[in-house]
Structures are given as structure tokens and as C-alpha cells.
Nucleic acid binder design. Structure first.
Lengths: 155, 155
DNA sequence: CTAGAACTTGAAGTTAACTTTAAGTCAAGG
DNA sequence: CCTTGACTTAAAGTTAACTTCAAGTTCTAG
């Protein structure tokens, strides 16, 4: 089974223009063409496309992804480089995860803040509340919000 | 203690031009000016700026953040709206977290893939390995990678 | 009082990742 | 054979979030 660019785009849930753009940027050197020049995606190309999608989600640029594709096409000599690339990406994702956790804590705090404000009818309720009255799990983030990053919360 | 735009930028670890840009976009209506027109950030503005930073990390646009700031300045009448905004953001972050987890699994699989390839000296080792030989925790993601999204892994 | 560093503004430039447009080509059904 | 919808390319347009530039102003130290 082969697919045209429009069919593959539909299958993956992206725009056909996106796949053409990726091709132009050298991300799809493995896609073959018909005698008339039409792209013919093979079933096995889906894995490539999924990996590209994954790398994009991980925050990699088109340029970086192209490097990976080029390495992969070079064959087994580049296994070490590719391993290093994904290991590095693993670290990046860990970092992203930690940041996302932190952002979540901040938003959780803000939800508590406005729930408390809603009950009292004024933001003064949470805003002027003593730290000791604030639920324990929000104290750290509250202190942090009120000072510059890297500043000691208590002086 | 008050800060100029350059001082505050340094404190927060961003470019001064970024703070000026945010001001121009209506994100900093609370910042006062000296008689000569120079921005004077107060200690308490840090909390605003931290919240803006948090909302940006959560993936909100400048426009959306401005809406929040405008609501906050309107006072207690908008508490419900602001609560709803952060609750919605909570959902968005949960979604982001799930996606990030999934991306991580994919990268973990690729690390295993290239570690296995490295040991064997060829990507054929992991690529052609029977599913039963693949470590259990990678089987699902491997199947998924090899098929279009939303497609049943087994037919 | 003055030099110069840091501030001000509006406008233009940058970047990444697409998307759209225009002009033309391919391929499948009737 | 011909129509028609999907394909092709190159080039231009879009968007968000900044950044840089140019010309002028303010503040602070000597």
C-alpha cells in the first residue's frame, strides 16, 4: 500500500503542505517518487514520520531532526551519535518535565487563591492571609512568587 | 526599593527589551513612571512578573495574559473569570504533561533501540527483533511507532 | 554644569515553522 | 481524448514573540 502526500497527511492528521515543507527541508529523503514526480509514501515510512513527530514534540528544530535523518541514512557507523542524541534529548525532557511540574504548582496555587477569593468575595482574603493560614503545600510557591528567582525566600 | 527596567530585567534574568515589549503590549499597566517618564518597578511588581512568567511557561499567549491582567485590575468582580481561567489552564497543563510523558516513552524506547544496536553493531538487532524479545515496557510504543495514530496496533 | 550610561519611543528587522498562491503537471474515470 | 481533482514547484505571505536601531531624553557622578 502506498499513499500520496494528501493521503498520508490525512492519516497522520497534519496538513499536506507541512509534509511538503518537511520534504523540502530534507526531513523526508526516504520518500520515493512515481515516474511523474509524485511522492509515494510507503507503509514503512509511517515510522519515520512518527519519529519526526516525536522529536518535534520534544522541542527539536527541523535542522536538528534533519541531522538525525542524515545520520540514520548513513547507516550503522552513526549508531553512537544517534544514541548520544537521544540520550541528550532524554535529559532535555527531564528538564522540561521538572519545569512543567513547577508551572503546575503555580497554577494550582492560583486556583486555590481564587477559590479562596471567591468564597470571601475579595482577593484580600488570600492575598493578605498569614503564611501560617495558607495550606502547607502552597507556602513554598507563594514565597517564591513574591520574590525574584534565585532570591532567598527569607532574609 | 524601586528598580529601573534594566535592573528588574537583570533580577528576573530576562532582557530589558522584553520587559519594554511586555509593557507596550499592555502586560505591565501597574508599573509606575518617574516624572521624567522612566519606568519604576516596585518590589511588589515582582509577583506580577512572576505570574506572567508562569503563564508564559504554561503556553499562554501575550494576548491571553493581557486579558488576565486587565481582569485583575478591574477588581473583585472578575474573581470568577480569573478562577475559570486558571482552572482551564490546569486542564491544559494536564494535557501537556500527558503528552510529555508519551514523548519521553518514545525517547526511552529510542535509547534502548540504539543501545541494543550499539551492542550488536547494527540497527538490524533492535529493528528486526521479534516483539516477544523486546523488553515488555517498550512493546506498546514500538507498535504505536510503526502504525498511524488512531490505527489499531493489531489487525 | 557636563559627560556618559541608561533610559525613552516608534519603527523596522529577525526567526522558525508553516501556509498560501500561482502556474503548471499528472492520473483516473467517463 | 478530455475533464477534474490532486499533485508539482518556487516564491511570497503569515504569525508570535522578541530584538535591534535610530534619534532623542533623563539621571547621576564628578
Amino acid at each position: 500500500m502506498v499513499y500520496t502526500v494528501g493521503e498520508m497527511a490525512k492519516l497522520l492528521g497534519v496538513a499536506a503542505s507541512t509534509l511538503r515543507y518537511y520534504d523540502k527541508e530534507g526531513l523526508l529523503p526516504f520518500v520515493e517518487r512515481s515516474s511523474g514526480g509524485i511522492r509515494m509514501f510507503r507503509e514503512s515510512d509511517i515510522e519515520w514520520l512518527q519519529v519526526i513527530g516525536c522529536m518535534k514534540k520534544a522541542g527539536m528544530s527541523i535542522k536538528d531532526i534533519r541531522q538525525y535523518i542524515e545520520m540514520a541514512l548513513q547507516g550503522d557507523d552513526t549508531i553512537d551519535l544517534r544514541l548520544a542524541m537521544f540520550q541528550r534529548q532524554q535529559e532535555v525532557l527531564k528538564q522540561q518535565m521538572a519545569e512543567l511540574q513547577h508551572t503546575m504548582e503555580m497554577v494550582d496555587y492560583k486556583c486555590w487563591y481564587y477559590e479562596t477569593a471567591k468564597e470571601a468575595g475579595t482577593v484580600d482574603a488570600p492575598q493578605k492571609m498569614e503564611l501560617a493560614e495558607v495550606p502547607e503545600r502552597f507556602r513554598k510557591i507563594r514565597q517564591e512568587l513574591r520574590t525574584a528567582p534565585g532570591t532567598a525566600a527569607t532574609i
